Amino acid sequence: MSIFDQETKNQIVEIFKHMTDEVRVEAYDKNEETDMVTFLKEICSFSDKLNFVFYEPDSERARELEIERIPGINLTRADGQDLGVRFSGIPAGHEINSLIAGLLELGGSGSQLPEEIEERIANIEGPLDIKVFVTLQCPHCPGAVLKAHKLAMMNPNIKAEMVEAQTFPALSQEYNISAVPKTVFSNGTELLGDQPFERILEAAEGKTV
């Protein structure tokens, strides 16, 4: 049984037609019969640019990439080059926008940044880990997730992870998540809300925000 109605499917298919490059969609879960795997397989069926791959949590690939949470998703280039673009939890609800945006970015139809901004991103030394805590009901969360993922796509020293707060309550408690989106940087900076890209970048650079 399809997860998406025909109208929604048609809309996503049209969006994916803008992709020019192939994207590998890696699913990490306990088996291939889970809700997340079913969800991802259907998404990937909407475009021949999307290649679905399944891994168990104890697989060599999961250990190589240090995948800590399942269900989890990792988006890479077609050759499997890891970019640190992670989702922990199912990106359904409003978060499907985060997934689609990430696929479009890697698929060659993403937004362009000014050269000055690209240079600043490239100069972040890292390693830097970014966690964006979200809920599926939050309309403001996808913007925060996309900005963090954009940083990871452009700098190999950065990893950015969407964390669905209700799926991982212990982690949410550890980071004192009481409202979303909340973006937590491993350099000690935290931001609440869907902040402008400049503030996200300054936080990644370790500047006081």
Rank of each mutant, 00 (worst) to 15 (best):
F133P: 10
A92R: 10
N123S: 15
P71Y: 05
L75I: 07
V134I: 15
G188Y: 07
G126Y: 10
P91F: 08
L192T: 04
S111L: 14
G89K: 02
P71A: 00
L99P: 14
V145I: 14
K147L: 04
G84A: 11
I177M: 10
L128A: 06
G110S: 04
P169Q: 07
G108L: 08
G110D: 04
N97D: 12
A122T: 09
I124K: 03
L75C: 10
T183C: 03
L128C: 11
Q81I: 03
F185S: 00
Y175Q: 09
N74P: 07
S88A: 15
L136P: 01
L106P: 08
Q173W: 05
S98T: 09
E190S: 15
V163C: 01
A148N: 11
A165T: 12
R61Y: 00
E115T: 12
S98F: 12
I117L: 08
E95S: 02
N97R: 09
K182R: 09
F87K: 00
H140V: 01
A170H: 11
P139Q: 01
A165C: 08
G89H: 03
L83H: 08
Q166N: 13
I90Q: 05
G72I: 03
L146S: 13
P91S: 06
P71R: 02
E66S: 14
F133Y: 14
S111V: 15
E125Q: 14
L192Y: 01
D79M: 00
A78K: 15
E164T: 05
A160F: 08
T135D: 02
P156C: 00
R120C: 13
N74L: 15
L136G: 05
Q173S: 11
H140A: 10
K159M: 03
I96S: 00
R69S: 00
S88K: 00
G93S: 04
E118S: 09
E105S: 13
E164W: 11
R120S: 08
E95D: 04
E64R: 07
L75P: 11
V184K: 04
A92V: 05
L99Q: 06
P71C: 03
E118A: 07
P91V: 05
L104T: 13
E118L: 15
M153C: 12
E174H: 13
G102Y: 08
E115V: 14
L99S: 04
Y175E: 13
V180N: 05
G107N: 03
C141E: 07
P91M: 05
L106N: 02
S111K: 15
T167M: 13
V163G: 01
A122E: 14
V184Y: 06
E95R: 02
Q112A: 14
T76K: 07
V180K: 03
Q173V: 05
I73L: 11
I67T: 12
P71S: 02
G84N: 09
L191K: 02
P91R: 04
E161W: 05
E118I: 09
E115A: 15
L191R: 01
L106Y: 08
V134S: 01
F168M: 09
C141S: 14
E66N: 15
G89S: 04
I96G: 00
E66F: 12
E95T: 03
M162D: 08
C138Y: 05
T189M: 15
S178C: 09
L171H: 12
F87G: 02
S186H: 05
L191C: 02
E190K: 11
K159S: 15
L65Y: 10
N123Y: 01
S98G: 10
I96N: 00
A101Q: 09
C141R: 06
